[in-house]
C-alpha cells in the first residue's frame, strides 16, 4: 500500500464544506492500493501553506478553497467572477469533471505542474451580502458608504465599484466587528456565517452573488504521473464520489435543509435582488472580468467565461 498524505485547512465542523473531502478520504483509505494520512482543520498546514507544501512534495494532495489562491493560480478565478458565478452555480455540469471548462482549467494548471482531480462537481452557492440592522444592505444602492468586510480580490473590486468601503479584518474578529459596528456587512458564503455563528449578529442577507468559490482536490502532475495504475484507479474512484457528492451535498442538502432554516430562525430578513440589480452587477463586474482576462490571457479567459456561461464549446 502506498501512503498518501493529504490536508485540508477546514475543520469537520464546517460540515457542508468537509462532507465531500472527508468522504473522499474515507473511500481512498478503504481501497487496497492506498492508505491515507490525512490532516484536517489546518492541524498540519495552515491554509496559506498548503500550496507551497504541495509543490515541495511534502504532501501528496490537498483540498483547497479556490478563493484563497486565485491570485497565485489565476485560472481558478473563474470560480469567483461576479456575473459568472451565478450561471456556473445554477448549472453544475459546466465545471464537472470531463467538461470542457474542467479540461481547460487543467490545461492551465498543468503549466504550473498542478493537477485538479475534481472541483467537487460544482462551485458552492455564491457569497452574498450579510448585514446588520445598523448598516442594512437591501439593494445595490444601499452599499454606498457602507463598510463591508471582504477577503477576495473579486469581491473587493465589486464592493468598491458600488461605493462601499472594502474592509479587511481577520475572520476571528469578524463576529465582534459586526456586533460593534466596526463593519456594517460582510461578503460571505453561508458556511462561514453558520460556522462562526455570525447569524447572531446579522439582520439582513441580500442575495446578490458577489463572488463564489469551490473546493478543489489538487495534486501535482508529477506526483500524479508517479502513481501506479492501481493507485490512480483508487484515487479516481474516490474522486468520482467527491465529484458526485461534494458540492451537491452542501448546496442541495445541508444548505437547504439546515443552514437556511437556521438563518430564518435567527430572524434574518432575506432579500432577493431584482433582475435589474443582477444586470447592474453584471455591468459593474465587467471590469473585474476584464482584469481577470488580462491575467490569464485573452484567449483562455474569454473561452473560460463563455464555457461557464454556457455559450462556448
Amino acid at each position: 500500500e502506498t501512503t498518501l498524505t493529504g490536508v485540508s485547512y477546514l475543520p469537520p465542523s464546517y460540515k457542508a464544506l468537509s462532507y465531500g473531502s472527508a468522504g473522499f478520504v474515507e473511500r481512498l483509505n478503504e481501497s487496497d492500493a492506498v492508505s491515507v494520512d490525512y490532516y484536517d482543520s489546518g492541524k498540519l498546514l495552515k491554509a496559506d501553506e498548503q500550496l507551497p507544501a504541495l509543490r515541495a512534495g511534502t504532501i501528496d494532495f490537498m483540498f483547497h478553497t479556490t478563493s484563497y489562491v486565485t491570485r497565485s493560480i489565476p485560472i481558478l478565478g473563474i470560480t469567483g467572477l461576479p456575473g459568472v458565478v451565478e450561471a456556473l452555480y445554477e448549472n453544475p455540469g459546466r465545471i464537472a469533471k470531463g467538461s470542457p471548462l474542467f479540461e481547460l482549467i487543467n490545461e492551465e494548471l498543468a503549466k504550473e505542474d498542478l493537477y485538479m482531480a475534481s472541483m467537487m462537481g460544482n462551485i458552492l452557492e455564491p457569497e452574498y451580502l450579510w448585514s446588520t440592522e445598523g448598516g442594512a444592505v437591501r439593494s445595490i444602492g444601499d452599499m454606498e458608504g457602507k463598510k463591508i468586510r471582504v477577503v477576495s480580490f473579486e469581491a473587493t473590486k465589486v464592493a468598491e465599484d458600488f461605493g462601499a468601503a472594502a474592509v479587511r479584518i481577520p475572520s476571528s474578529e469578524l463576529y465582534l466587528a459586526l456586533q460593534r459596528g466596526t463593519v456594517d456587512a460582510a461578503v460571505a458564503n453561508i458556511s462561514t456565517v453558520i460556522g462562526r455563528s455570525l447569524q447572531e449578529q446579522l439582520d439582513v442577507v441580500y442575495k446578490l452573488p458577489m463572488t463564489a468559490y469551490g473546493i478543489g482536490l489538487f495534486t501535482t502532475t508529477q506526483r500524479w504521473e508517479r502513481l501506479g495504475d492501481a493507485e490512480k484507479a483508487a484515487f479516481d474512484e474516490a474522486a468520482a464520489w467527491f465529484e458526485e457528492n461534494g458540492a451537491a451535498q452542501a448546496n442541495d442538502t445541508i444548505y437547504v435543509d439546515e443552514y437556511w432554516p437556521m438563518i430564518e430562525e435567527a430572524g434574518l430578513e432575506v432579500v432577493e435582488p431584482s433582475e435589474e440589480e443582477l444586470a447592474r452587477l453584471d455591468e459593474v463586474a465587467q471590469a473585474v472580468r476584464d482584469a481577470w482576462i488580462e491575467e490569464v490571457g485573452a484567449e483562455v479567459g474569454e473561452r473560460a467565461i463563455a464555457l461557464a456561461l454556457g455559450n462556448g464549446s
Binding site: 500550496l51 507551497p52 509543490r55 515541495a56 478563493s67 484563497y68 489562491v69 486565485t70 491570485r71 497565485s72 504550473e112 477577503v151 477576495s152 480580490f153 473587493t156 473590486k157 472594502a166 479587511r168
Partner: peptide
C-alpha cells in the same frame, strides 16, 4: 530560501486586492 524562491518562481501572491507577492 527555497520557500521564498519557489514563491517568486511561481508568482505566488496573496489573493486579496492588494496581492502582496509572497
Amino acid at each position: 530560501y527555497l520557500m521564498a524562491f519557489q514563491a517568486w518562481d511561481y508568482g505566488e501572491r496573496v489573493s486579496s486586492s492588494f496581492g502582496t507577492p509572497m
